[in-house]
């Protein structure tokens, strides 16, 4: 297996409704992949499926294969039992969670919580304490933080601890699920730079989940855009940004504010995303798409749309986006 992580036809359903409806994802060694999309499109669900941490009542199908450095045979996560997953989690794939504020046990010291995980995977040894200091140093915290309780740290410090925790057992893949949403702008930039630096230094593969394309453009090599439980466009970051091949991607990019550009609100995407598990017939973006046509009632395939690129739009590759008059811009019925 060339890639460190390969997801094939992943489906996650809840009470018979598809939350994630058949996605393929590849993650090369040392690569950073951005997974973008609006709230409720299935980004976090995909991440939890990789960890096999979906709450009760969720069903996952499809193959997830993980090939950590030096392993002969890829680990088939989809075939692992709960007990079998315990040795895969954190050892090979770890996660930085969304809510930095509540991700640590409030009544245990930071050092204890880090050591606990190291001991869990590497057996009890005297090296754990030393390793905690190294990890804290790695994420730019002093060794004294180990003796603190979570409430004594700032949001940024807590998120750094969470990153240190994610790196504690030297995983091949780190999934960062909106790691900066709870932080202020300055902290956001610092945490992202830290993630990017660590990825390069440690040769990790990183999946960065966010709804913020601006954040991703700075850190990711490749991007996958999700909409209503499917991937609608994927490709190298710079190409996707400069020449989007799906109307949804185009809209996401246009909704970013431009520094030095015109004052005022960025144009929103008309309408709202469909409820999870309940997409409209045909192309899920059709009701919000200004370019939609009769053909869009047929579901589009994720097809080649340029070198190393895929897009799920009947009209792709778009050589030139048609200019819309103001009157026709907006949601089609």
């Amino acid at each position: 297996m060339r890639n460190v992580l390969e997801i094939r036809d992943l489906r996650v359903s809840h009470r018979g409704k598809d939350i994630v409806s058949g996605i393929d994802l590849n993650l090369a060694r040392g690569e950073s992949l951005g997974l973008a999309g609006e709230s409720g499109c299935g980004k976090t669900t995909t991440a939890l499926a990789v960890m096999k941490l979906l709450p009760e009542g969720f069903r996952q199908e499809g193959s997830i294969a993980l090939a950590p450095e030096g392993s002969d045979e890829p680990i088939r996560i989809d075939r692992r039992t709960e007990a079998g997953m315990r040795v895969v989690r954190w050892r090979h794939v770890s996660m930085v969670f969304q809510g930095a504020m509540n991700s640590l046990d409030p009544v245990k010291k930071i050092g204890f919580q880090l050591e606990e995980v190291i001991n869990l995977h590497e057996g009890r040894s005297s090296g754990a304490r030393q390793r905690v200091e190294e990890l804290l140093d790695l994420v730019g915290l002093t060794a004294a933080v180990a003796r603190r309780y979570p409430h004594q740290l700032s949001g940024g410090q807590k998120q750094r601890v969470m990153i240190a925790l994610a790196l504690a057992c030297g995983p091949s893949v780190v999934i960062a699920d909106e790691p900066t949403t709870a932080l202020d702008v300055v902290m956001q930039a610092q945490v992202l730079q830290l993630l990017e630096r660590l990825r390069e230094e440690l040769g990790l593969a990183l999946v960065l989940i966010s709804h913020d394309l601006g954040v991703m453009a700075e850190t990711c090599d490749r991007i996958a855009i999700m909409y209503a439980g499917r991937i609608v466009e994927t490709g190298p970051m710079d190409l996707v940004i400069s020449d989007p091949q799906h109307p949804y991607t185009k809209h996401l990019l246009e909704s970013l504010p431009v520094i030095g550009g015109e004052r005022g609100l960025a144009p929103p995407i008309p309408g709202g995303p469909p409820a999870p598990g309940d997409p409209p017939e045909g192309c899920a973006f059709r009701p919000r798409c200004p370019y939609s046509d009769e053909i869009c009632f047929q579901p589009p395939d994720l097809a080649e749309a340029g070198p190393d690129r895929l897009a799920a739009c009947h009209f792709s590759p778009w050589s030139k986006w048609p200019v819309l008059s103001d009157a026709s811009k907006g949601a089609n019925p």
Binding site: M51, L53, M85, R86, V87, V88, R89, W90, R91, S94, M95, F97, Q98, G99, N102, S103, L104, D105, P106, K108, E116, V117, L120, H121, M162, L165
Partner: peptide, 20 residues
């Protein structure tokens, strides 16, 4: 959230319950 995090680290469920 921290319960999910502890589980994600590969900790046994009974340890997550009893220790955290």
């Amino acid at each position: 959230d921290f319960i999910t995090v502890k589980r994600a680290t590969g900790m046994r469920w009974d340890r997550v319950v009893n220790r955290h």
